[in-house]
Design a binder for these strands. Structure first.
Lengths: 343, 343
DNA sequence: TTGGCGACTGTTAGCGGTAACATAGTGTGG
DNA sequence: CCACACTATGTTACCGCTAACAGTCGCCAA
């Protein structure tokens, strides 16, 4: 029986309790607790004291229903465990901090049907906005968002048609850019390692852009390897080993994310492979983990913090034209690190 | 103007709209949408069709207020970016999946005042349960939880007095155990690397236990180093370097988490330091990242998945004595890896 | 025929707040 | 000394949905 710190029978408190305890009307209590409207200092003090003494916690459910206002922002992302979304979340929280708005996270695990149900669930709480990763959604999801009558910001990607606003970068272009840099550095036998996930559209677009640029240079991928599940670092090692076993003459490996790239790098160092002369490596995301590696992996910063910030600003109406849909493209910078030949 | 897929003026739909569209009462619509009570198949079909056609999304705010039931579980954790809580979240989600309950995450950044406000905010939505990291909370936070009249599960730690239920491990014991293993392996000049954060109570308890066991063995810490912010991997390198510079004869470094431990390991490999003969290393958490490292860092598995699972089971009433407070202690296993001498 | 039961649908009264308006004090200038 | 503008507080009517209860209808046993 953990819960009997206070006097009487357990019953959740309402405004009425505070009202009775402080001798004013419920309305006045409500005003005090929300800092809204004129209340005399004396009354205010009395009410606050009573509320504190009782341990009253307002019921936002009732408040939201009555006021038709909900201070929640739905944030829908595919995963929490890959170091990319936590940073986006940080950007969102930073901006929302002072606005009275609160982010609520939903995770889809890269499953469209799960995204649909998470979205439905969240919309049923009538949030003031939605921030959702990616531009690819089921028809039902798109319809829900379009209907919702609240600002929607699709983040990470801008290769496609958003429902409302979008903040992100062109992954196709990012892939292209990386391929161009690689080719310019003289690499010719290029392989790819990525995730198995069919619904990681952004990784897919990067690969598309990458292959397109290779094609233009008269090249094509020599080999490719996919993984799913498990420790990304370990998978990076294993895939690298597999590729090099099949194609000893491969001179560059492009990884769909930094984590497997780091695994590949560690593998090469273990095997004393000459990076970047004999073999070049590159990842994607610019995760801070890379800073601690023995050598700096080439990567592209995905602007995660800015994406989070800007998305939150759109929702919070902090942009120049509040309420107007915006499409904001960010331009990731290529960080060549120590794993691409300089020439 | 992204939102005008449907006919008329934008106005959010209510049960009444569906009721009118399908020619039955609101109550019947409500019953259909919740799958509650008897409704004829014909009516059910008609209602579902109407709801689908209109794109109706129920208003849970109203529903929750009327039914006094909220399918939300508040999950309050210090951080998302350290690989430990995402796994706890996975455990929670797995269990909550089929129960109709939904986790809602709040992040405190290891700040007690932020924890208090996040908790207040979450309780004001009247969730059906709270899962919160740690046993150390402000008096106000403890009071709120005790008052809330819902199951509360404090996770990760059991060295202390929970408000209601608790699932976790003894970090003090974990530290002690690691120290004993280290001493048993013959190490004597032992140093420590940890986080600066004064509110990471669990790391602090591990260190306390560690030092206590050292004391019993007639030893004490030779040196210690703290960090805050930045890439943990990099900080691990730097701290290791600093310690070895100050005390070249240190023969073991205990890290408060795996990430800085991994950084230390990479540093030692770079410098061709003989691990574990000349210098032993150990971390804490058992993060899967370690699998990809050139050598397996000694660590202790923190049972994160199980903690999440069990906490969720308590909230969901899936334990033998539903509703009864429980204190569940888990026992982490020491994984000696390749960075402690075997003898 | 009548009563009763089961299957289905409707009605009523809130849930705990807040918007909007109403009302009670309080001073102020003409 | 009263009309008038304020300030501080109270009243009323919902917000959109659901619990609880109240029908209605068809059918079958007595």
């Amino acid at each position: 029986m953990p819960n009997d710190q206070t006097q009487d029978t357990r019953r959740t408190l309402t405004l009425r309790d505070v009202s009775e305890a402080s001798g004013v009307s419920e309305m006045t209590v409500s005003r005090v607790l929300r800092n809204r409207g004129d209340v005399s200092d004396a009354t205010r003090a009395r009410v606050l004291e009573a509320a504190r003494a009782l341990g009253y916690v307002p019921n936002k459910i009732a408040g939201a229903l009555a006021s038709q206002r909900v201070n929640l922002v739905a944030v829908i992302i595919p995963s929490l465990s890959n170091m990319v979304f936590p940073e986006v979340m940080t950007g969102i929280s930073d901006v929302l901090e002072g606005t009275g708005l609160q982010p609520v996270v939903g995770v889809t695990n890269y499953l469209p049907e799960r995204e649909e149900s998470v979205l439905y669930e969240m919309l049923s709480w009538r949030p003031s906005g939605v921030i959702i990763a990616g531009l690819e959604h089921s028809a039902a999801s798109r319809a829900m968002m379009a209907q919702a009558g609240i600002p929607i910001v699709e983040i990470m990607d801008i290769d496609g048609q958003p429902v409302d606003s979008a903040v992100g970068l062109s992954h196709r272009r990012a892939g292209r850019q990386m391929a161009e840099a690689i080719v310019a550095s003289g690499y010719r036998k290029i392989a790819f390692c990525g995730t198995q996930m069919p619904n990681d559209f952004r990784a897919k677009k990067r690969l598309e852009g990458f292959e397109e640029a290779l094609r233009r240079a008269g090249l094509s991928l020599l080999d490719r390897e996919y993984y799913s599940g498990g420790s990304a670092l370990l998978k990076g090692r294993e895939m690298t080993q597999a590729i090099l076993a099949r194609n000893p003459d491969v001179d560059f490996i492009y990884y769909s994310n930094d984590m497997i790239g780091a695994g590949g790098l560690l593998y090469c160092l273990d095997k004393a492979i000459d990076v970047p002369e004999h073999l070049g490596l590159a990842g994607f995301n610019g995760v801070e983990l890379l800073d601690g590696l023995p050598r700096r992996l080439a990567t592209m910063d995905a602007c995660r913090l800015d994406i989070g910030r800007l998305a939150a600003e759109i929702i919070a109406g902090k942009r120049p034209n509040p309420g107007k849909p915006e499409i904001i493209e960010l331009f990731p910078t290529l960080q060549p690190g120590d794993t691409i030949r300089q020439r």
